[in-house]
Each structure stands twice: as C-alpha cells, then as structure tokens.
Design a protein around this nucleic acid. Structure first.
Length: 506
RNA sequence: GCCCCCGUCGUCUAGAGGCCAAGGACGCCACCCUUUCAAGGUGGAGAUCACGGGUUCGAAUCCCGUCGGGGGCGCCA
C-alpha cells in the first residue's frame, strides 16, 4: 500500500442531529485536505435517515460551521451536483434505494424479518438474564424462501429487512491509517443488522453505502468508531458485487481528561461557540489539522495552502488525540498577532458593537478611533471576545469600586492624592498631547516627586482606566485625550479622598 | 462479558534497528526586557519510550504476553 493514484472522491456525511462539534469539523477537514491535495472532489451529503433524532435547522448550522473554517464542497445539498440530491431523505423519497433492497432480497443476501422491536427487546433481556455473553440476533426468516417472506409481508405484518450475515469464515479490510494493515472479524461474531426499518426507511449502513457507490466515492475517511461496523459494509459490497472504497479510520478526539470521546454535553465544543468567542478560522483550521496529523517534528503554523500541499494519510496518527483548548488559544493568539491593524480592528468591531461600545456597523469616527486603539491591545489578545473588556474604559466613564487600588507600593492615600494632583497640574498645560511629550513630562514628574515610575504610572493607570492591568500608559493617555485624562485624574483623587476621608487641598 | 483499535514528557507530537544518554510545541517555573499585563528573548524542570519477555552485535522502533485507555456490541449515525 502506498501511493494514492487515480481520481479521488471523498465525502463528509454528517447527520443533522444538532450542532456540529469540532470533532466533526476535524473529520470533514481531513477529507477536504485529502481531496484538495490529490486534486479530487469533496462532497457534502446529509444523512438524515433517523427521523427521531432530526433537529431542524442543524443542516444549515453545520454548513455554516464548515464554511466558517473555510471548507468548501464541490457537490452538496445547497449547490447540487451530478448525483443530486445530496440529502438522504430526499433520495429515499425519490425511490433511489428501492431497487437495491430488492436486489439484495432477490439474491438472498437479505431477508424480511418479522420480529418486532418489542420481541427483540424481550429476547435480549432474556439472553442477558441467562448469562449469554453477547446477543447476536439472526432471524428465523433468514432460512425462509423469498416467496414465503413475501406471503407473510402480504398479510400486512410489519417487517424490517436484515442482512443475512455468514456464520463462519472471516471478513477483513485494510485501513490506510494503520499503514494498510488488515483488520479481521470473525463472521460468527456478527449479527443480522437491520438494513431497512419497518417504516421503510433505509438505515445508515445501507443508505450510505449505496450513496457512496452511486456517487463514485473512492476513499472513506471517517471516525474510528466505525471500524466495528465496517465488516458489515464489506459484506454488503460483496453482496452487491461492487468494489469497496479504501477505508481510513481517523483517530478520535478524546475529552481533556481522556475519559471518553468529546461530546457537546460535557465539553464546550460546538463549532459556532468558537466564532462567538472570537477564534480565527485559520487558527481553528491549523489546530484541528494537528489533531491526529503532523507534517514533521517541528512545523506547526501552516497556512491553508501549506496544509493542502502537505497533507497525506500516511502521516495520520492511529492513536487518539486529546482536546487541548490551551493549545488552540495559543494558536489563536499567534494568528491574531499576524493580522494587520486594519484587519484586527474590523475583526473586533462586531464584538465591541455587541457589548454596546460602538454602533454596528461602526461610524467613520468610531472606526478611525478603533484603528487608533487596536495597536494597544494587539499583542494582548488571545480571543477577539476579550476586546470589549480591554477597551471598555475608552468608551465609558470609569468607576472606582475599590479606590485603594490607586495606592501603589510604599505609598499611602495622601501621597497618592498628591501625586495625582501633581500629574493633573503638570499635564493641564501640555500641548501637543502626544505619547512622547506625555512620557517626558511624567518621567520628569517622577524625579520631582521622588517616586519610582512604577508608583506614579501605576497610580495614573488606575485613575485613568479604573484597573490595574491595562495597555501601555502613554499610548493610553494619548488615545484617551487630554480632557478625559484630566477629568479622571481629578475624579480618582476625589474618590480616594472620600474613601479614606483624607482632606483634599484645593 | 465479547470483539476491535490504541499505548513516547501533564497534553499534542518527531522518531520507520545504530545519527536518541529521545527532538519540537502547548502548559509550568526562573531570568532578561519593562510603567502594569501581554508579546518577545534566554534558560530550566518534565519521558527508565506502559510493563515483562524474546529476536538482534545493537530496539522507542520487529515478535509474543500482560496491563492500561478508547471504541463497538440499536428498527442511532
């Protein structure tokens, strides 16, 4: 096994049962990278044969999630294609699966099973009670003639169609992720799976396989949890007399604690949550590509194009990866730092608007101001959603919930108030109000007052921003403007005075 | 329970018999830079390559067993 040759067609076939989580995006991504690397096609197909778990709107959400990270498809439910439709319920309505079911019945590879769900349930429970290790159901009808099956069906008894699995021998397939190694199952350990529900709706096993064949899928890259059902698929390909595709089972992404697979219930991993919090799609794409795949021992930051160029199946890891939000966060920071000021400003604008700090879309003045503020937080941002918090004091008045924060090391309320007032006096006449002039004046003031820069600047920082952690001071003052700076110096001094009942000299 | 898959620093990984007294990244710690926080720079702790047997002159790399983890055992996908 080695080189992949010939045209490549792969698909991502999610079921619309809720939000797409990042594990699903990873599976889609590997398929997409594989298709793009070999110049093949990537197909999106919606597998909605489970009427019970269907969640309206989730197909749209899932497509939005894929588009967000930049995954596009060559054929799909929204854009059609030569094998349309790309939604299984629609294909079922169009009668696409019917002849194939008929074929299986005729050839004796499948049979009508009249055992009801309730009976099955009871049998399972009894078997368990008897201490049977594994309940492997094979219906008595598997030995009936097709005519007899049809007669029974004609009486109106509901039935399912089951695959008549062999009871001896082995079924095997090769897996590209494991270097083309053979994975083998004993047929006696299989059971007669349902192919068509009593409602007449085909089940995943049948539908996906017929579709893959009809759509000329060459490689099936899917999550690891499918290896156990692959022998059934192999058996089905044999029953139809079709050439099976190549299989590649991708390692799962485990929860952070390693206990089980990632799930929406336990982990905050719905894809749309990441754009809400301000993750860059490039960062997500890059992070996800590294979950189970690597290029070499040291290259991590790779563009979409580099990923496409470098992605091959032989570098996909068979062992599970583990969800690591800290690594993603770090990577997001890297991608944010690579943005230009303009790009970042435009990226954070919606977040500021949502926080009510600016309008949506921003006015020309707001955008200009934002362009001035963006460099102050550029290196400090890891999620775009943090921007409103970091920038809030530029848009709203500050309050001093704890005035004692104004007091720096080795200072007290009195000296702090004096320092703030001295700063006020020093800056009031300052013209022009620029970074360099502010720095020169305030450094000189440190000398005069006999204060360390940390002390004076710290006090001013809290006075002007209302917080102990903020962007660099002179940039902040310059961006804030003279009027507001002076007003806040005064307000802070008063607040501290009121709080400590120190008398303010006027 | 049965079947299948997997097993290198806490985490993601490099490693395809000698270049490995195991390299990179995240996280962690320290120092430098510095007005706070970041960013950046430098350094550090952290893996007897799950364990035990083989094969071989030589094994993280090959084989077997054990243990551990994960997955599957549905008229869900």
């Amino acid at each position: 096994m080695g080189e992949i040759q010939g045209p490549v067609r792969v698909r991502f076939a999610p079921s619309p049962t809720g939000y797409l989580h990042i594990g699903g995006v990873r599976t889609a991504l590997f398929n997409w990278l594989f298709a793009r690397h070999y110049g093949g096609q990537f197909i999106l197909r919606i597998e909605d044969t489970d009427e019970k778990r269907y969640v309206p709107g989730s197909a749209d959400d899932l497509m939005a999630s894929l588009r967000w990270v930049g995954i596009d498809w060559d054929e799909g439910p929204d854009i059609g294609g030569p094998y349309a439709p790309y939604v299984q319920s629609l294909r079922h309505e169009a009668g696409i699966y019917r002849p194939f079911i008929e074929q299986l019945l005729e050839s004796g590879h499948a049979y009508m099973s009249f055992t009801t769900e309730e009976e099955l349930e009871r049998m399972r429970a009894e078997a368990l009670a008897r201490g049977v290790k594994a309940f492997r159901f094979r219906g008595p009808e598997r030995d009936w003639s097709l005519d007899r099956q049809r007669e029974m069906a004609a009486t109106g008894r509901p039935y399912t169609v089951r695959l008549k699995t062999p009871t001896e021998g082995v079924t095997a397939f090769r897996d590209l992720v494991r270097g083309g190694e053979r994975i083998e199952f004993k047929n006696e350990e299989l059971y007669d799976i349902v192919l068509v529900k009593s409602s007449g709706m085909p089940v995943y096993h049948l539908a996906h396989l017929v579709d893959d064949h009809l759509m000329r899928i060459t490689h099936v890259l899917r999550s690891d949890e499918w290896v156990a059902s692959t022998p059934y698929h192999v058996l089905l390909y044999q029953a139809f007399g079709w050439e099976p595709p190549a299989f590649a089972h991708l390692p799962p992404i485990l929860r952070q604690d390693g206990r089980g697979k990632l799930s929406k219930r336990h982990d905050d991993v719905a894809t749309n949550r990441f754009w809400e919090r301000g993750y860059l799609p490039e960062a997500m794409l890059n992070y996800l590509a590294l979950q189970g795949w690597s290029y070499d021992g040291y290259t991590e930051i790779m563009s979409r194009e580099e990923l496409i160029e470098r992605f091959t199946l032989d570098r996909v890891q068979p062992s599970p990866a583990r969800w690591n939000p800290e690594k993603l966060l770090d990577m997001n920071g890297i991608y944010i730092r690579r943005l230009t000021t303009e790009q970042l400003a435009d990226a954070i604008a919606p977040f500021l608007a949502r926080a009510g700090l600016i309008s949506n879309p921003p006015t020309a003045e707001e955008r200009a101001y934002l362009l001035q503020l963006t460099p102050l937080i550029h290196d400090r941002l890891k999620e775009l959603g943090e921007a409103p918090e970091l920038l809030e004091f530029f848009f709203r008045e500050v309050t001093y919930s704890d005035p004692l924060l104004l007091v720096q090391k080795k200072m007290d309320a009195a000296t702090t108030i004096a320092a703030l007032q001295a700063a006020y006096a020093r800056l009031a006449p300052l013209e022009p109000w620029t970074h360099d002039r502010l720095e020169a004046e305030l450094r000189a003031l440190c000398e005069e007052l006999g204060l360390k820069s940390g002390q004076l600047f710290g006090a001013i920082r809290v006075a002007v921003t209302g917080r102990t952690v903020a962007p660099p001071l002179f940039d902040t003052l310059a961006a804030l403007g003279k009027a507001r700076t002076l007003q806040r110096l005064q307000a802070a001094a008063s607040a501290l005075a009121a709080h400590t009942e120190v008398k303010v000299q006027s």
